[in-house]
């Protein structure tokens, strides 16, 4: 009887198990399965062991895409986190101005990702685009379909425009949660505006900034839709990030085996970096001074 009662709990969690299995574990295991085989078509497959992993790890195009990806994510974090904090600091704290600025800031987050790519294609067109035509009109040649540099600048601008608002919202919420007494005490202690930021606001933002850094790193590392729509990975391979390369491999060339091995490696890289960031940010400013 006791045994039956104890086991009843397992029935309760079965639905969750099923959902997780169908949504995560089974697809993931399928990918692992694919990554170990050469697939020619339905029912035609050969076990190849770790060959695809070896191929992927030695693929120069993958290395190039990984480097591009790392550079992209680093730039994203370096620009979006400080910019997000700065904007959050400048936003009004209360009244109608606070609501208005929140709505304005949140607007880019509400636009579907592929639409964002389209908006920026038009915005940056050298002939009719608002920004593209303006820059070209000043005599600076700027065409994201022709110049790798212009393509990078455009992708970065789009990414910063699209996702800095998330950092702003997180930082703004964090700033609003700081009790007034901290600012009053700092005024009495004679702290400068920089001192208030450095010793009150920044430490109190640590929790939300950890989340912001993790989210922005993972999202930017997995970016696909916007650069795919905007540049398609070009010109050349200059904006071919990991996910774009992966899709070219899997869908474009139908190399399911190598693409699967690549996916697993991709997944492990994201996991590893996220873990490193998380550990590093947890430790920031918690050690006792000796």
């Amino acid at each position: 009887m006791n045994k039956w009662e104890n086991n009843k709990a397992w029935f309760m969690v079965i639905p969750v198990f099923l959902v997780v299995a169908v949504s995560a574990i089974i697809p993931l295991m399928t990918v692992v399965n694919y990554s170990l085989q050469d697939i020619f078509g339905p029912g035609q497959r050969v076990f190849v062991g770790l060959e695809w992993y070896q191929d992927a790890l030695t693929d120069p195009r993958l290395h190039a895409a990984l480097n591009r990806q790392l550079l992209f994510s680093t730039l994203v974090l370096l620009i979006e986190i400080p910019l997000g904090i700065l904007i959050a600091l400048m936003m009004p704290k209360k009244g109608w101005g606070a609501s208005l600025s929140l709505v304005l800031v949140a607007l880019p987050l509400l636009i579907p990702w592929n639409v964002i790519g389209t908006i920026w294609i038009i915005f940056m067109r050298p002939d009719i685009g608002l920004l593209g035509a303006a820059v070209n009109g000043m005599g600076i040649p700027f065409d994201h379909t022709a110049s790798p540099f212009a393509a990078w600048v455009t992708v970065m601008l789009m990414e910063v425009w699209h996702w800095t608002p998330l950092v702003v919202l997180l930082a703004y919420a964090g700033l609003q949660a700081i009790p007034d007494a901290y600012f009053q005490a700092a005024r009495i202690d004679g702290a400068s505006a920089w001192g208030i930021f450095r010793y009150i606001q920044l430490p109190k933002l640590r929790g939300v900034l950890t989340i912001a850094v993790l989210l922005r790193f993972m999202d930017s590392f997995l970016i696909y839709a916007e650069p795919f729509v905007l540049t398609g990975g070009g010109p050349g391979n200059s904006t071919t990030f990991l996910s774009i390369y992966l899709v070219k491999l899997a869908v474009g060339q139908f190399d399911l085996g190598p693409a699967a091995a690549f996916s697993i490696i991709y997944f492990l890289i994201v996991l590893l970096f996220s873990w490193l960031f998380y550990q590093a940010l947890l430790k920031v400013g918690t050690g006792d001074k000796s």
Binding site: P179, A181, Q184, I188, Y199, P203
Partner: peptide
């Protein structure tokens, strides 16, 4: 001034 909730500089 000493406030209701202790104000210290965390870091």
């Amino acid at each position: 001034q000493v406030f209701q909730f202790p104000v210290i500089y965390d870091t």
